[in-house]
Amino acid sequence: MITMKIKISLFVLAALMLVSCKKKDETDTSPKTGKISISFEHFISNQPAIVNDYIYTNAAGNVYSFFLVRYFISDVELYKSDGSVVKIDKWTDHFYVDTDIPHTLEWNVFDEISIGNFDSLSFRFGFSDTKNQSFMFVNQPESNMVWPEELGGGYHYLQLEGKWIDPNGIKIGYAFHLGRGQHYDGSGNPVPPFIDNSFRVSLPNSAFSVETDKTTKLTLRMNIENWFEEPHLYDHNQWGGDIMQQQPAMLLAKENGWNVFSFNLNNN
């Protein structure tokens, strides 16, 4: 019986040691990380964008409707208060957003993000020229964003579509598409090198914190009307329905894109 008691005591002791060692290990080595998710919302004049209705007027005075928007963002960088930079690139370094596909409106980022306070974030709208490689997407819907080889290849950064009412009262489709730009020779043939129209979006007022084992929910809002107004007035009557082969129009889009997005923190 006494031997039995000794055996039990030894067993308990060993178990205690094991547990305490494990605890110590966990305390010392477990990474201090949390998660982030990014929701995408699309507003016009400070309200969620309403599809189909001709209820909007842009800065150039065009009455227009909004039907859909599709785009890529890539190379997201999170700027920590200690000066370090966290890049989102572990599983994927880009995300596709499509207002017709609800599951694309939230990006549950795979990366483990080191905990702490972050001052801001930035991302590339579209893809850098290095990353914008033809045939890198084989599956739809991303492959539907293909940008023609003749025009430089790769993928559309943006497809923003709707209609506007022209001076004759005709409702004309606008395909406000952004991707690689082209120069043309005298015969109208595109001439390399093609132009990288992607751009970085910096959101200085985008402070948030990441806590251990929690998901911090961020929201990126596209303020659609801003594509058409600052610093350049964009007039659909001037540029017409299609701009993929009009680099001056795509340049306006690129330069207007700087303040299209705003940031919200939503930890409800």
């Binding site: 004759n168 004309i172 489709g173």
Partner: peptide, 12 residues
């Protein structure tokens, strides 16, 4: 008015 927006070559 129902023509798809990508049919932008309908431009009467």
């Amino acid at each position: 008015e129902y023509a798809h927006q990508l049919m932008h070559k309908v431009f009467p």
